[in-house]
Amino acid sequence: MSDAEARSRTVDPDALFVRLVRAHRDLSPEESRRLDAALVLLLVEALGDPQRLDVAIAAARTALGKPVEPPEEARE
């Protein structure tokens, strides 16, 4: 069992899911987006390692079935 797996077994996954959803309970869709963005920024800061952000972005994009690298912006 890896360290990460060991750690993730000590937290209650259902409770974690509920906590994230609960934080949005009284928010409009726009406020929810802001809250998520604020959470991401705070968590990235807490991580203190931009490389782990890259890994997480790659994993999240893969989960959505998108290529890891977004396309280049058009030049005109």
Partner: peptide
Amino acid sequence: TEAARAYRDAVLLLAKDHAFARRM
């Protein structure tokens, strides 16, 4: 995009209390 605006606004909201956000 909506995502860009959400991150932008979140940075501005966090800036008051968080030095890392001020720098952004």
